[in-house]
Nucleic acid binder design. Structure first.
Ligand SMILES: [Mn+2]
Ligand SMILES: [Mn+2]
Ligand SMILES: [Mn+2]
Ligand SMILES: [Mn+2]
Lengths: 217, 217
DNA sequence: AAACATTTTTAGTCTTGGCTAAACATTAAG
DNA sequence: CTTAATGTTTAGCCAAGACTAAAAATGTTT
């Protein structure tokens, strides 16, 4: 498996969560910042290797084999993110780019020893679940903050977007994983939300609220 | 810098220690298990980027810039080897191949944080010195065991060959870094050596002895 | 100094993973 | 139900990094 093939599998895996039909070459190209024609080429190679199911014009889905490989890449990505935060004092907005590189290191022993060294974590620094060595992954039931009704109390359990600017914004507002949030009011005009976060009043836009995962308290 | 360019720089760096003229394309091809013609191509690219000095038919030498980059790759390689042994319980014969991958991860912050996490080690698991963040590298004065005279006492400080079979052989003979070695006798016929290693009698071939670095006690 | 042997470079080819432009399918409108 | 818009694939091209075979430079003998 090449670096490039691994990236395709990972992107297809992530896109599979928000769409239940086949993933279009266009969708893949958007995420990868490449062109649909390039995606078609690669997708055909992956189909030859039986990592994806592919029907022309109908999009692509992962096979069992492809799904497992994707999960192993996600596993490595998230374990390395934990390592960087827990052991090397990186902040949660600094880890993603480095993990993008580290996720391609090929050594089962390394992955499993790292897992052990970290105490078998179940979530990465952004609240995303970490697949175990057999590819099993917990699905936490979580909602977007934007979907929560007024006066409901929830706990922040994850971020949908883990780009540095968004994470830095959250840091600034002192919103972190584990923060308790109460939806005080929702503005009809711009759908912004008034919150009480760990006792402090904070107002956030709808865009922010629709990138924060929460669970009922 | 591509993965491939980095590997070339590293190989040129290592070869520079045993030869003081320019490194031949042939020598590089041998180490890289590729062909001299491929090396010529790449060496010309590295010269364009001013990472090496290259005169046709005269071999190649690292520039200041190329030397620094090579040292940073060696630094990462050796730091990761320490990490694998010290933190993840790898044995010294298992780390090299994984470090070959990890040495290409690009993040100064990661390298320096890892260095700190490991307590700023000065040597890797094979006794090789680790360059600091400015590229400074200690040169330990060490000799090959094969050059030591009869009845001299020395301490094992490094291995020249760090291939798994050789390292596993040393494990079997209970020869490790720090072992005290006395040369009891040298056989004229095959140049094999009778040793006392930490009090135990061991006989080793000349090939073994010329891959073990020692220093006078 | 010439001939031979060895080393090194050049010329031309291949594969991988991209791209653009053009052709073709599918979907949405009229 | 035909046309227009959009999405997708094909065809043809490119750069990186490898290779083989042939040419050229260098080194070693006689
Ligand atoms: Mn990430
Ligand atoms: Mn993450
Ligand atoms: Mn090594
Ligand atoms: Mn080493």
């Amino acid at each position: 498996m090449t670096y490039s093939e691994e990236n395709y599998l990972k992107v297809i895996y992530h896109l599979s969560h928000t769409a239940n039909k086949g993933i279009s070459t266009n969708a893949i190209a958007n995420v990868m910042e490449s062109k649909p024609s390039s995606v078609t080429d690669m997708v055909q190679k992956l189909a030859d290797k039986e990592l994806v199911e592919y029907v022309k014009y109908q999009g692509v889905t992962l096979t069992q084999k492809g799904m497992f490989m994707a999960l192993m890449i996600v596993r490595k990505h998230r374990l390395w993110e934990v390592f960087l935060v827990e052991k090397l004092d990186f902040s949660w907005d600094e880890v993603h780019d480095v993990a993008e590189q580290l996720e391609h290191i090929k050594s089962e022993k390394l992955t499993n020893k790292l897992d052990e060294f970290l105490g078998f974590p179940t979530e990465d620094p952004h609240g995303d679940p970490i697949p175990d060595k057999d590819g099993r992954i917990a699905s936490i039931d979580k909602k977007l903050l934007s979907e929560i009704g007024v006066s409901k109390k929830v706990i922040c359990v994850g971020v949908k977007d883990s780009s540095p600017p968004f994470l830095q914004y959250l840091d600034k507002q002192q919103i972190a994983l584990g923060s308790s949030i109460e939806v005080v009011a929702k503005e009809d005009f711009d759908h912004s939300l008034s919150l009480r976060v760990d006792g402090k009043n904070v107002t956030v836009s709808n865009k922010i609220a629709s990138n924060l995962f929460v669970k009922p308290v």
